[in-house]
């Protein structure tokens, strides 16, 4: 009788301590902030894509090949960071990330890599400066974005600030 009480107490103590450790880990990792961080990065990509699309559609001429190169470089930069932006445990909360990111992680990484490759090509064609080639390549970058969003992002994102 008394022994079971002691054991019960011990288990209880361990449980409380473990809960404390888990809470502590959460407080330090603060998954919300990594979500916020990567949403910022993705929003930036969206900005570049909108800008590039406006150019590809012939809506603006203030664009130069240097600016296209800069946007492409930023897209490459973000693409390289995508794997690190989705650490395990950041699948809940205010995020549109699908569980497939972690379940089919190799596919996810390949999709991220594709964005890097297409954006690198965009920087290359922008250096060469052929307008038709640039416009063509912008379309491929857009496809790379969509190629990842389709399997790995939930539709209709909640309004993130």
């Amino acid at each position: 009788m008394r022994r079971s009480l002691v054991i019960g107490l011990a288990i209880g103590t361990v449980a409380v301590a473990m809960a404390g450790i888990v809470a502590e880990a959460f407080a330090q990792a603060r998954p919300l902030d990594m979500i916020r961080y990567r949403q910022s990065a993705m929003k930036g990509n969206g900005g570049y894509l909108n800008a590039l699309n406006a150019y590809a559609k012939g809506e603006v001429t203030v664009v130069t090949k240097d600016t296209i190169k800069a946007y492409a470089a930023a897209l490459v930069g973000t693409s390289l960071e995508i794997p690190g932006m989705f650490p395990a445990g950041t699948d809940t909360g205010r995020t549109n990330a699908k569980p497939e990111i972690w379940q089919k992680n190799a596919d996810f990484l390949a999709a991220a890599k594709r964005l890097g490759e297409e954006s690198t090509k965009l920087a290359e064609v922008a250096t060469a400066g052929n307008e038709a080639a640039m416009k063509e390549q912008i379309g491929k970058v857009a496809q790379a974005c969509g190629g990842c969003h389709q399997p790995f992002r939930k539709p209709l994102p909640p309004a993130a600030k």
Binding site: G44, A51, V60, V63
Partner: peptide, 22 residues
């Protein structure tokens, strides 16, 4: 079109500053 274009770029700036701000 210019307005749309520059807003896209401001969004890009914003997003970068957001990430770096964290």
């Amino acid at each position: 079109n210019v307005i749309k274009y520059r807003k896209s770029l401001m969004t890009a700036n914003t997003s970068h500053m957001g990430a770096m701000g964290e």
